[in-house]
């Protein structure tokens, strides 16, 4: 998996590509942890994400919880497959999806 990252002052954009599963989730978790200091607007661009497993959802949940304390987090370009996973797991209720 590759993660595209754009950081401008307090804005952070992350675009994971490929599959976000048990193998790749720790990589995204690490990237988030290292770059989240002082960020008030976190955006995930999921246009090129093919699949999210429960391990991937856990990383998104951690990020959401961290951002609850310091700003806003939103997801954009969520495709149909990923949206279905968010709906089934109830994640669509707690995430801001555009």
């Amino acid at each position: 998996m590759t993660i595209r990252m754009e950081k401008q002052a307090d804005k952070l954009l992350l675009a994971p590509e490929g599959r976000l599963d048990t193998v790749t989730a720790p990589e995204l978790e690490k990237t988030i942890k290292e770059n989240l200091d002082g960020v008030t607007a976190l955006t995930f661009d999921l246009a090129d994400l093919e699949y999210v497993s429960s391990a991937g959802l856990r990383v998104l949940l951690s990020a959401q919880k961290a951002m609850n304390g310091q700003g806003e987090m939103k997801l954009c370009n969520v495709n149909e497959t990923i949206m279905e996973i968010f709906e089934v797991t109830g994640f669509s209720d707690i995430l801001t999806i555009e």
């Binding site: 959802l57 949940l61 709906e87 089934v88 797991t89 109830g90 994640f91 209720d93 707690i94």
Partner: peptide, 9 residues
């Protein structure tokens, strides 16, 4: 009808 996963919130 789906609720949220257990342990997250």
């Amino acid at each position: 009808k789906h609720g949220f996963v257990i342990g997250a919130m």
